[in-house]
Each structure stands twice: as structure tokens, then as C-alpha cells.
């Protein structure tokens, strides 16, 4: 696992439309394959988790970010570096809980939902649930158990998209991927 010399820290970019539409095709397929929205949400979360587990390595290699000292720093890294790097957006961080263990990411522009409209019969579908899985999986790999969920979604008529993240605990034993 030696770090490749000269590996560009800047990752290659691509047009977001192919990404958006591919994600749309995936969600459509899941909606066809599963009977109810809850199962689709679960599957999206699982796929996101798998992505997160792999993404964190890519992230650490490219970003040169060191260990975070507290959850506030983690929040900053997620919003200002990770989201920027992978999705080209910078969510704002708000609504810290008094204990400093819970915050919200506000996404003004979610690239996953361009062109998307939820049909009436999928009102409980959490379309972008993949993101929750990604955050959960990536943080688990750096020994942080977090709870991530959508509390507002522009697809459901809210004015912004809000992801709520709650720090649960530090993971002492580093479990191998895929075992929970």
C-alpha cells in the first residue's frame, strides 16, 4: 500500500449530468426491483456505505488532511473539502447542538437531484439517501460512528436540503468492512 509518487492531488473532473442521470437510472432500477420505498432507501444507504468505505482512502490520499481534533473540524473537512472535491458543492454548516455532537449540512444545490421530480406514489422515497451511506461509511473507516439522515429535501418541497449528522461514539476496534 505504498503511496504512489506523483499522484495528482487534484482529481479529474467530469460533467455532472452523466453522474446525475446515472444515479437516476440506478434509483429507478431500485424502485422497480423493490416493492416499497423503505427497502429502496435501505439499499441506497447500503450502496452509499460501500462507496464511503472505499472513498475515504481516495479522499485521504488526495486531500492531505490530517487527523481531526474534534467533531467541528470534521464537519469543516466534510463540507469544505470532501463535498467540494467530489460533488463540486460546498454545503454550509449550521444548527450545532449545544453539546457540539450534532450539526446540519445545508445543501443549496444537490447535484444528485438535477432533473428529478418525485412521483406521488414514491412520497417516502429518500432519493439522495446514498449520501447518508457515503458519509456513514467514510467516517466509520476513520473510527467515527455517526448517524446521518435527511431532515429536509428540496424534492419534497422544502426550500433547502438538510442532512443532519450526529456523532455517536469513537470506534475503538476497527471492524473490517462489511461487518457491523
Amino acid at each position: 500500500m505504498s503511496r504512489q509518487a506523483g499522484r495528482g492531488t487534484e482529481s479529474k473532473k467530469m460533467n455532472s449530468e452523466l453522474f446525475t442521470l446515472t444515479y437516476g437510472a440506478l434509483v429507478t432500477q431500485l424502485c422497480k426491483d423493490y416493492e416499497n420505498d423503505e427497502d429502496v432507501n435501505k439499499q441506497l444507504d447500503k450502496m452509499g456505505y460501500n462507496i464511503g468505505v472505499r472513498l475515504i482512502e481516495d479522499f485521504l490520499a488526495r486531500s492531505n488532511v490530517g487527523r481531526c481534533h474534534d467533531f467541528r473540524e470534521t464537519a469543516d473537512v466534510i463540507a469544505k473539502i470532501a463535498f467540494k472535491m467530489y460533488l463540486g458543492i460546498t454545503p454550509s454548516i449550521t444548527n450545532w447542538s449545544p453539546g457540539g455532537d450534532e450539526f446540519s449540512l445545508i445543501l443549496e444545490n444537490n447535484p444528485l437531484v438535477d432533473f428529478v421530480e418525485l412521483p406521488d406514489n414514491h412520497s417516502s422515497l429518500i432519493y439522495s439517501n446514498l449520501l447518508c451511506g457515503v458519509l456513514r461509511g467514510a467516517l466509520e473507516m476513520v473510527q467515527m460512528a455517526v448517524d446521518v439522515k435527511f431532515v429536509q429535501d428540496t424534492l419534497k418541497g422544502d426550500s433547502v436540503t438538510e442532512i443532519r449528522m450526529k456523532f455517536i461514539r469513537r470506534i475503538e476496534d476497527n471492524l473490517p468492512a462489511g461487518e457491523e
Partner: peptide
């Protein structure tokens, strides 16, 4: 669109799609 996403993000998504 002027927005861009990283190729890694797409590659990971596509990989999940293929695995699924």
C-alpha cells in the same frame, strides 16, 4: 451545466451499479 463532479465519485457510483 457548469457544475462538475469528480471522476472518482462517478467511478465509485458506477462500480456500485455494476455490482448491484
Amino acid at each position: 451545466p457548469r457544475t462538475e463532479v469528480s471522476l472518482s465519485a462517478f467511478a465509485l457510483l458506477f462500480s456500485e451499479l455494476v455490482q448491484y
